[in-house]
Nucleic acid binder design. Structure first.
Lengths: 224, 224
DNA sequence: GTCTATAATGAGATAGAC
DNA sequence: GTCTATCTCATTATAGAC
């Protein structure tokens, strides 16, 4: 089992990794565009060039391919969200962090992950948004990764800074924020169409700034 | 062709209508739950009891069934939204209608159509929400009904009452409202889960009230 | 209008040679 | 690890009897 004793094995291993990546890349794109039911292994083969039988060899089933697609980036994505929250809290003394900053701390990694980290991440985040409405029929067979701890961490910080709001108001507000960002990730360009092109849902800074202004104001509603 | 000359025809006609309705009811439910690709004509047969061949006889194809499902309620739904806007504007002198009232005028028919008009309407509105992310791959083959005039009418009224906001801010704000309501129609119960049951996304008045407070405050953001 | 039967194709999944 | 070949079943869709 020396390093140079089995060069063939290492070549095969490397090839295996490449093959898996090709499958996952194609599956990620197709699942995110057409959903799980709307994508066949034949489609994945057509886009990736990898034989269908290799999907079964490397993953086991179509559902296992989806699971692998999710698993590939889930942990890193969750960590990016938590890091953003930590960075926000560390920026100033914790007590001076505003609701505005919290909204941006949540929206920025979501939007930037979708628009500025390359095609793979764009497809992954679009898939996550798609699964938010399709997952009910895939679970519990497919174990979708849980973002619950991330959500809880953000809700906790909002609660700290909104002592005048009820628990329900905070949850509804953060839900409206989540729902709006999920919709943005679907790339349906509803706002672009609604505004006849005036609004550009692919302009990162504009999206974040509009969300920050609007949702921060929404959270502050009980004031008047 | 007298009224009593062909009783057989009228019986057949009535039966035809019933059969069509059975197909549309089942298709409406299944498409809204599992999407277009996720639903087969066999599924529709299993739920409705109507033979698959009759789907082809009455509609032509699976896509034509979807089209018929949409067409059955679209006009009435759009009119309900416009009526709600008119009723809101007529309530007081037009100039005194507040942004709060406008938000409710939009949210109420959407939420009530989903939660209080029976199973058929609940399935229809869920389907509309689902198609908002799936329609890109069905159009232009399936002509999804346009809600654009309804949207335009609401945007116009928001614009009148928010002279301090930019055109972009108004569009983004109304988009956030639309996206949040679309998400609610999907029945994923994200907010219920996020709040560990504290929030109930099936409580009509609570949903409308929370949306009204939050989004009205969001629209008023440029004040401070 | 409704039924049975079936065509024609696409789907997920597996076996075995290389 | 990869390939070819194939199995089995579900799918959309049609033809023709009643």
């Amino acid at each position: 089992m020396g390093a140079s004793a089995q060069p063939k094995e290492r070549v095969d291993q490397r090839r295996s990794i490449q093959t898996k990546a090709k499958i996952l890349d194609a599956a990620e794109e197709l699942f995110s565009l057409h959903g799980f039911s709307g994508t066949s292994l034949r489609d994945i083969h057509a886009l990736s060039g990898v034989r269908i039988s290799l999907c079964y060899y490397h993953f086991g089933s179509k559902e296992d391919v989806l699971q692998a697609v999710v698993d590939r980036r889930a942990q890193e994505h969750r960590q990016a969200l938590l890091d953003s929250l930590q960075a926000c809290l560390a920026d100033a003394e914790q007590s001076t962090v505003s609701v505005e900053q919290l909204v941006a701390a949540y929206a920025r990694p979501v939007i930037e992950g979708h628009l500025t980290r390359g095609e793979g991440w764009r497809n992954y985040t679009r898939l996550m948004a798609h699964l938010a409405s399709e997952s009910a029929h895939l679970e519990p067979r497919v174990q979708l990764n849980k973002y619950d701890p991330v959500i809880d961490a953000f809700v906790e910080q909002f609660r700290k800074r909104l002592p005048g709001s009820t628990e329900a108001q905070i949850h509804w507000g953060f839900y409206f924020l989540r729902a709006s960002l999920i919709n943005l990730l679907l790339d349906t360009q509803i706002v672009d169409h609604q505004s006849r092109g005036l609004c550009d849902s692919t302009d990162v800074e504009v999206v974040i700034q509009q969300a920050q202004q609007f949702f921060a104001a929404g959270f502050h509603h009980p004031v008047p």
